[in-house]
Amino acid sequence: MTTTTTQPLLEAEHLTKRYEDGVLALDNVSFTVSPGQIYAMLGGNGAGKSTAINLFLNFIEPTDGEARIDGIASHRDPLAAKARVAYVSEQVRLYPSFTAIQNVDFFARLAGKTSYTREDYRQALLRVGLQPEAHDKRLKGFSKGMQQKTGIAIAILKDAPAILLDEPTSGLDPKAGREFVRLLQDLRDEGKAILMSTHDLFRAKEVADMVGIMNQGRLVMQRTRDELHGEDLEALYVRYMAGYMEG
């Protein structure tokens, strides 16, 4: 790693998406996430958070602007871009007839990681808080939270420089949520660039190095951790939502 601190890993540049039915889901949004940084994208339902993440993964094509991963525009070279990013979606359900180990093994190898051992998989599953007795159980009987944890383990095992998380805490109980925050901090300390969408203000404030508030497809506020220091994020959030409404 030489110039990683100066070069942002995730970049949204004038990112705009209008769906076929005319909905303007993302309106000229720009932000960057550098290695060792957690960016929390806040916003209510329908604000455009998932749309932004899907643009990074080239699941949809941008109407205008571009999403770049490590300098590669996702819609130009999707395979190269996707090789550099791990992804946790909301409500992962995975393969019910596979065990947790089999699930992580499949996705790890799909990500090109072929040298992992069973022990590595166990370590990763332990790290996300999945109890050892569950590792060899089929996912059929897993709770939402256990499946989400397995999904997070998959993202960790991909070991990509950037991580996209779309409302990752939605299936987790408070304890698991707290553990997850710690895990995110570890990953950041390892130098990952993390973009997380959430409507959980509390967690956002806890971990984020940068917070962006989205409303109706626009990035209406963006503050660093330092700028937020001492501010009441909840009040800010409400104010910006309301302010946007007025404006």
């Binding site: 395979l79 996707k82 990013v85 992804y87 979606s89 359900r93 799909l110 090109g112 991909k158």
Partner: peptide, 12 residues
Amino acid sequence: RGTLRLSLANAV
């Protein structure tokens, strides 16, 4: 199941 998204989030 969400596995399609997860699979295609890789260089596949």
